[in-house]
Design a protein around this nucleic acid. Structure first.
Lengths: 120, 120, 120, 120
DNA sequence: GTGGTCTAGACCACG
DNA sequence: GTGGTCTAGACCACA
């Protein structure tokens, strides 16, 4: 379900956040579907429960999941979260495009790259 | 010449790297032009020389600058470096576009955003 | 009669307490009126009887309800309970107002907000 | 500087957050002023550094402070944070006022209480 | 020295 | 069983 890469510069808890966020926002995990428990996911990934706990807590504060003590953690309906994520990605894209412009890459080239990349 | 933002989440040495890299790859610093010495830049920015040293070393390993013992550091001719940087940015862009697709954003919307954002 | 929200950050037993307390103190449940039995309410809300039991016990210790062994639980006459609750709410209000003052909000603004908000 | 109450139902890290947030938003700690280091505050309060770390990290995500690895943590200028906090307090106040209304307390009584409380 | 991440193991409240 | 908090102790990157 989730793949950890210990060579990745991102901390483990963030890899988990990114992985789960993607699964939820893309609908691979349905709204209100139960997520693996902190402990079970920890043993499955062979890492410390605290690390999972941290990822879950942060995702909850993002509104991507919600947790009920004694019951478990669940995927949240993602209207707002998806919109927020989209905003974030657009901001990153703007920064990227701006830097490409600095390297004298035109909008046309960028657009061509995007469209070309998707025919793959 | 360079602006440091202590509230930026990026570490200082990386802000310096990003700033110099941009100045060099955009041509604001000409190829083979001499860069400020480690010590002078350190006093100018009021930070630890070690931090500058690290930025310079890393930029050299990237091929963006080159150092001559006893003479100083210089901007490298930037054909290769610029191409490498472009590759890197395109890779990031692909990842970004991929994630936007996962959120059901079409290529058309992305392209429109890019073109729209640049009229500003 | 009661609505549970699993996404609410409050634990289930507290949602039940808050709901029943409001129903009783506002008079929606008359004094000495019989409350649903622990078991019936548990099945109705599809939750664990222990949870209902805890809510009832805590409400009894608050003086909002009283239980008669073998007969059931009943709404208490609410003069005292309402007064106590009012005290509590006023204390919270004082804390809140104090913090608003710290943020340089004047009494006039607070009062205006209260009156304005209730015209809705 | 900060007082911990182990009987308080709020977790320790939140008491620290609330305390620091108040000190900063009220201006008792000036913008860009350095906060005690994680370790020093931990020993001073006789609690685990991780707990302080957690409070600091969460305050940073709130925009109340900013941290620079290797340099320390600092109070953030509080334009946005103060406004956000005010919003939050007003929401709590609305809930409180609503519940008071349910107990047949009029706006006039509430207002009188607020104004009276401040003559103290 | 600073903040940030992770582990190991414990305890609590909740259901 | 669940999530949430805390401790103790370690290691890393940064300045």
């Amino acid at each position: 379900m989730l793949i950890l890469n210990y060579r990745d510069s991102r901390p483990i808890y963030q890899q988990i956040m990114d992985g789960l966020r993607k699964l939820i926002l893309t609908g691979a995990i349905a709204p209100d579907e139960k997520l693996p428990s902190v402990r079970s996911l920890a043993t499955e990934l062979a890492i410390n429960p605290n690390t999972i706990q941290r990822a879950y807590a942060q995702l909850e504060s993002e509104g991507v999941i919600y947790s009920v003590a004694g019951k478990g953690s669940f995927a949240a309906p993602h209207q707002d979260a998806a919109a927020a994520r989209k905003e974030e990605l657009y901001a990153q894209l703007d920064a990227l495009v701006g830097e490409l412009h600095d390297l004298n890459v035109t909008n046309e080239e960028i657009v061509a790259h995007i469209k070309g990349g998707n025919e793959t």
